[in-house]
Design a protein around this nucleic acid. Sequence first.
DNA 1: ACAAAAGTGTTTTCCATACACCCATGC
DNA 2: GCATGGGTGTATGGAAAACACTTTTGT
Lengths: 229, 229
Amino acid sequence: MSFTYKYPRPAVAVDMVIFGYDTKKLRVLLIRRGIEPFFDCWALPGGFVNPDESLDDAARRELAEETGLDQIFMEQLYSFGSVDRDPRERVISVCYYALIDLLGTTPKGASDAAEARWFNIDDLPTLAFDHNEILNFSLERIRGKLSYQPVGFELLPRLFTLSQLQRLYEVILGHALDKRNFRKKLMKMDLLLATDEYETNVSHRAAQFYCFDRPKYQKLVKEGFAFDL
Amino acid sequence: MSFTYKYPRPAVAVDMVIFGYDTKKLRVLLIRRGIEPFFDCWALPGGFVNPDESLDDAARRELAEETGLDQIFMEQLYSFGSVDRDPRERVISVCYYALIDLLGTTPKGASDAAEARWFNIDDLPTLAFDHNEILNFSLERIRGKLSYQPVGFELLPRLFTLSQLQRLYEVILGHALDKRNFRKKLMKMDLLLATDEYETNVSHRAAQFYCFDRPKYQKLVKEGFAFDL
DNA sequence: ACAAAAGTGTTTTCCATACACCCATGC
DNA sequence: GCATGGGTGTATGGAAAACACTTTTGT
């Protein structure tokens, strides 16, 4: 079976920058390529867009194939379209990034035979194609975003302590934050709901669990509320 | 001549949201479609990506075709890829927006026979395809961007008065700004160069002309400077 | 002289930052 | 009782916002 067109067409792929967080480090999921070009190189997971799925659907499908996870925060990043980014032929890549909590959930490895691994964000190999560029771009984006939107909640279990949240911000931003000021700011945002649950079995004062006020957040987003961290 | 592939491929287009500003209103350049579907409807200018040009190149080419202008501020916005956004066949549209000063320059109409017109931003017709959605999206983006980057300079002549700059901000943001505070903030950014030229033939005190310190701006962008308006 | 826009400073309020100690718990 | 991280308040500096009058020019 084959498909014929009057004009040449680029292939269209989605590539995924999948961030994972595990209380210590920010990680990215990479796969080892099993075919040329860049055989054996690490690369961002991705694939071609099917005719019957939207770009978002394609991205969500890739994400599910690689991680087994659904219902994950995901956002379109940018489309890369240099003529020679793929040596074989013209490929336009629409890139997405996703954020995954590596604690509360257990993402499976890639479904296809290809080897998949979580890499520490500041210890990355040279990647296939222009994937290093894409990765840097998405890292800048997530850091920028974190500063004015409470993106981080996607990377934590439903219930979390303020210290967990602060560590998350510190890991993503790459620098320490003042505990008291961090709490003040977050409380002022008024998007955290204190629960009556506390940590157990810790050898220090038990921290209170909070959860994220999703309805309120979505209302604010709709109204164009400007966050500010 | 025809082109055959093993798998079906979407067509890839670039669509342009071209903003223009003329001291009173923010406008968008639309073209009237001469073919089905949406015959006679207004639509965003755009076209298919050629095999030998990058996405940015394609966007720049479209921009030049529609306006005759080169060297214009332009930025990728988002890629739209719903399955049914074009009733004929699958088309993925990579969208860009551009900003044009309608005073200092005189953009020609569209080069092809199609009718082209500048529409007031708050008096828009129903557009072809998902183009209303795309336009709203880009309007939000430009407003957001204005708040933390001095984007507005792209929409003014090389020499401009502070009042002109303020009017521009007010028109795009859609609300009034305090004159003294506006000047203080802009001066503190240190990106304006006062010239020794003044308005002439105005029936009030002549305003001083300023120009934008482009080298300094580009330096700051490279260093990741955060603006804040 | 008056209309019309340019230009200019001060005060107040609020937010960001810096900073140090007591509290609860497990061992 | 000690080690560990949880939790809290205050003082200071700087930016943002509010606000009104004088200057210049053409008619």
